[in-house]
Design a protein around this nucleic acid. Structure first.
Lengths: 115, 115
DNA sequence: CGTTCATATAAATGTTTGTTTATATGTTAA
DNA sequence: TTAACATATAAACAAACATTTATATGAACG
């Protein structure tokens, strides 16, 4: 797998509303599956499925603690990149720019409906 | 359309190998469709179709000059963001990092098979 | 051990998406 | 206006993907 393919896979994985919601909720923290299920309002199997995708794309990594499995970002630089992209896309037609969501905390408040 | 949706759309559009190839070829320049067709080796209708997607996502913008239509990036910051993402994804399993493709020229040589 | 809780997987379904083939629109020049 | 070139669109098809429902694995605790 060459670098173009890696980048493509990485971006494709990011380009899903529910997965972005999850990444946004996780941020710089470490979250259990049930926490993500609850905060996103998505079904448990759906969350688990997307988490698998995110893990296989190596965007998230896991650690088991007792009965819980915790997910966190593998590379925090992702937040910077998403910050830029959010800025760019936020300036597109029919809406104006605003505070950055990604980048540095607290950016996980109020935009995605995550609590 | 809220910002989450915009970001999602933006990322989804980026997450395609052929579209990335085209963006990579265009870079900071302004390119005609036939130039892109030739450099990518893709069929003309396919290129035209992807260019439409990129234009509708407001990643590219167009200018007509005589019989030619030129496409260029609407926001050059995209290259910085892609630079970060390329760095991150390049460090993933089964391959090691290397020079950045996006960011500053000449990053459009040699990685995508674009000439 | 057997029950309960947390998470993962499988099969089934409907939708979206990329690609091809064929054709149309638009521009220039003779 | 007709011919030649540049680009765009449409229909048709196949493959990929997100989602649901149902079930399985795995850990803790009585």
């Amino acid at each position: 797998m060459d670098d173009a393919a890696k980048l493509q896979m990485y971006l494709q994985t990011l380009g899903d509303a529910n997965r972005l919601k999850m990444i946004n909720y996780i941020g710089e923290r470490e979250c259990s599956v049930s926490e993500i299920v609850e905060s996103t309002g998505l079904s448990q199997p759906l969350v688990s499925h997307h988490l698998r995708t995110l893990r296989e794309s190596q965007i998230l990594e896991t650690e088991r603690k007792g009965p819980f499995v915790y997910y966190k970002l593998k590379d925090k630089r992702l937040l910077s990149a998403l910050g830029i992209l959010l800025e760019i896309s936020g300036e597109l037609k029919d809406r104006k720019p605003h505070e950055a969501m990604f980048c540095s905390p607290p950016w996980w408040t109020s935009f995605w409906g995550s609590k």
